[in-house]
Amino acid sequence: MFRNNYDNDTVTYSPTGRLFQVEYALEAIKQGSAAVGLTSKNHVVLVALKRNAEELGSYQKKIIKIDSHMGVALAGLAPDARVLSNYLKKKAMENKLIFDKQIQTYKAVLSIADKAQENTQGFGSRPYGVGLLIAGYDETGSHLFEFQPSGSVLEYFGAAIGARSQAARTYLERNLEIIQQETEVEKLIVHGLNALRDTLSQDVELTFKNTTVAVVGKDQEFITYDDEDVQQWLDKLDSVSNARNREEETEENTEENTHETNNEDNQDHPTNEDRMETDE
């Protein structure tokens, strides 16, 4: 490892104006498996890839319901996500109790963003090591936000976080116009899964065990699909493996493919990343 004099705490800037501890926290998100979110006028869809620490172990939960109109998908340190989502749940219930109305997605996201920001300014504190995609449908319509440990919040039509998420973003960018026009939830979910599929590493496929899907929208309370319930959505896909892998399958017969040229994300992480402690 290289040495860095300016990364011991979050109160010290580097001479180039960076906060290394915060940037490291952003790296922690990339260690987690991918989560994808996308919106249409009336719906928001979250899909995510679950990982299990070992064959016999359970899969880590990737999507957490906050209230009947809101939920989050996470990538990074799952315990941090649990703390943040508990805080969101509390805020959502508080709002319902005091104002008899569901909390606006924007207001909810700002509440955790403010919390996260405080951790970037204290001496003994560690920034949250998790990124969240927050999906909500409220009186102002459908919303998708990305939350970062730096405390920054941005709204997206489509967003992806976690390992190899660039591939999903590329898919979303290419299909943005179709996605935005989409009126059927089913098709929106398929787009989400298509994007998620592109983040898969070579030997992995989307299965009902490792895929999780959630929807929220107009006249649609937040609902997550896990395990057997996911199969109905996977059945709608033309393929459950990565597009690159599919190409390889056809090429496999002709030559030994070293497929290291595909994606820069692939090079960032060693192949054993799926076993890393930092994974959710």
Partner: peptide, 17 residues
């Protein structure tokens, strides 16, 4: 603050509060 000049505060909210 929450709404940047929105118009969402309605009677049931005021009453509950």
């Amino acid at each position: 603050y929450d709404n940047d000049g929105g118009d969402f505060l309605i009677a049931p909210n005021v009453h509950e509060y």
